[in-house]
């Protein structure tokens, strides 16, 4: 994840703008990635199917494991919980950096991942908003569908 490292070093004091940048990069990556990967599994999906596909197959491609927990209220809100989020494995294990620094690092990795998820789902036909928070031993992604958009 050299791109994240780059933004940590590059943009010293403006974490919001680097988060935004990384989220946009993630979006673009997710967009083309979903186009490429979805060709391999020929099947049309509805909303829940798409999320399941993301959690099972795409998550393995991206993070080499399936998600640990997926919950939904059946009204367009999905919560994905990943107990061992791969991008944060290293930093969560070795907490020997200053606490301030790791938080920044986490935030940027998370920003990238949310962008990635957003890009994938948007391209699959479900525009959405993705937020994330670091739970105790993992990451929780909350996905809200914009059902108003066609």
């Amino acid at each position: 994840m050299a791109v994240v490292e780059h933004y940590i070093n590059d943009n010293e004091n403006n974490i919001d703008s680097s988060s935004l940048f990384l989220s946009q990069i993630g979006y673009r990556v997710g967009y083309s990635l979903s186009e490429r990967l979805s060709k391999e599994s020929p099947r049309y999906r509805d909303e829940l199917d798409t999320i399941k596909y993301l959690c099972k197959e795409l998550w393995i491609c991206l993070f080499k494991k399936q998600v640990d927990n997926l919950r939904t209220n059946h009204q367009g809100v999905y919560v994905i919980h990943d107990g061992r989020f791969r991008l944060l494995q290293q930093t969560l294990l070795t907490m020997n950096k200053p606490i301030d620094d790791t938080n920044r690092l986490h935030q940027l990795y998370i920003a990238y991942s949310t962008g990635l998820i957003r890009g994938i789902l948007t391209n699959m036909g479900y525009p959405c908003r993705v937020t994330a928070e670091i739970a105790e031993f993992g990451v929780k992604f909350q996905i809200e569908m914009n059902s108003t958009v066609g």
């Binding site: 979903s34 186009e35 979805s38 060709k39 020929p42 099947r43 999906r45 199917d49 699959m124």
Partner: peptide, 26 residues
């Protein structure tokens, strides 16, 4: 839903042409 195909076949024939369609999963 388990169709293993994005190819949707002949959409419709008109006098001089035949139209075929294909829709990707995205």
């Amino acid at each position: 839903r388990d169709t293993k195909d994005f190819y949707l076949g002949l959409l419709y024939p008109v006098e001089e042409y035949k139209i075929y369609g294909y829709v990707s999963p995205t």
